[in-house]
């Protein structure tokens, strides 16, 4: 049963980008195009038969230089539900110097004629570098501390479905902004969509001049949450907890962990989000995270598959892509 809003990857309005490398370069129209299409996929994914044939015969390679379970699985499902062939590649980065393999790997994979490469890499800019060396579409599944565009898009879809809009909402992004690609992608996207964005973190976890990205800066969580519609918590990596960026886990939770007490400052219907995986008791209290009335964390995961299906469909519309040319 074909339940996709479109029945052919060539139909529908073309997408303005060959790759999806970040949200900084997406226009409001681009974002709405993705979210509108993703809405349809949310419905399709709730059917018994979740599959259509849009990507039939096409190959998607998940190329992950960093460990990931959820993002990789989400892309894998998205590709398979569109009828594409999906291959997962995890490249070990421990044994060999990372960079030596990057372009070699790109060129090697390119010779196998994939149609989409989904890439995660630990270095900022690595996915863009790889995109310059291949003929197929590339989706950035996270590059260093730079961008993670599909995460921001799935967050936007979650917000839009829950709140009916993005424009004018107060959004607080809280935690390790400095090392977070999720934070950067969300800041760009939310600003483009007309939300008012603030970041809340201790100064050691904020990059220099973050205000120039168009956000208000707060160091106190309760103050930062005043009048908020959306509370986005970020994951704090364990290696950054022990004395380097923050003195200890318990001190971090005491001042920057989200609990009901601090949440009182936000609007009563404020939505709580987290890109996962969560550190319970570090950046977020378990009770808050599991509050089905307030927390959208599981919904985010569901939206993730739909948004990635929309992105794959739109990139497959690229009339200049080599595989499309070959077919015509």
């Amino acid at each position: 049963m074909e339940t996709s809003p479109t029945s052919d990857a060539g139909a529908g309005a073309p997408f303005a980008h060959r790759h999806l490398l970040g949200t900084e370069t997406l226009s409001r129209g681009d974002i709405e195009q993705i979210l509108d299409l993703a809405d349809g996929y949310v419905d399709q994914n709730r059917q018994t038969d979740k599959k259509n044939g849009l990507l039939r015969g096409r190959t998607l390679i998940n190329l992950f230089f960093e460990n990931s379970t959820r993002t990789r699985t989400s892309f894998e499902l998205a590709g398979k539900r569109l009828g594409g062939d999906v291959i997962n590649m995890s490249v070990s980065t421990s044994s060999i110097k990372k960079g030596e393999t990057l372009i070699d790997t790109a060129v090697t994979l390119n010779a196998m004629h994939p149609d989409v490469l989904v890439v995660r890499h630990g270095d900022s800019g690595a996915v863009q570098l790889l995109a310059e060396k291949v003929n197929c579409a590339v989706i950035n599944a996270g590059d260093g501390s730079h961008e993670h565009p599909t995460q921001a898009l799935l967050d936007a879809l979650t917000i839009r479905r829950r709140k009916g809009r993005i424009e004018g909402l107060n959004v607080a992004i809280c935690g390790d902004v400095s090392h977070s690609r999720v934070a950067r992608s969300n800041i760009h996207l939310l600003n483009t969509m007309g939300a008012r964005v603030r970041v809340v973190a201790p100064p050691t976890l904020l990059p220099a001049h973050i205000d120039r990205l168009g956000v208000d800066v707060h160091h106190n969580l309760a103050e930062g949450l005043v009048d908020c519609d959306i509370v986005m918590m970020l994951r704090l990596q364990t290696e950054r907890m022990a004395g380097s960026f923050v003195p200890s886990m318990r001190e971090y939770f005491y001042f920057h962990g989200l609990d009901y007490d601090k949440l009182r400052a936000a609007k009563p219907d404020a939505l709580i989000m987290h890109p996962g995986p969560m550190n319970r008791g570090v950046e977020i209290d378990s009770e808050v995270a599991d509050d089905i009335d307030r927390s959208a964390i599981h919904e985010q995961v569901e939206m993730g598959v739909a948004v990635r299906m929309a992105c794959l469909e739109l990139l497959a519309r690229d009339q200049n892509a080599p595989w499309t040319r070959n077919q015509s």
Binding site: E24, H146, R181, A208, I210
Partner: peptide, 8 residues
Amino acid sequence: ETATRLGL
């Protein structure tokens, strides 16, 4: 600002 945007 450039470093912050690039995530470097």
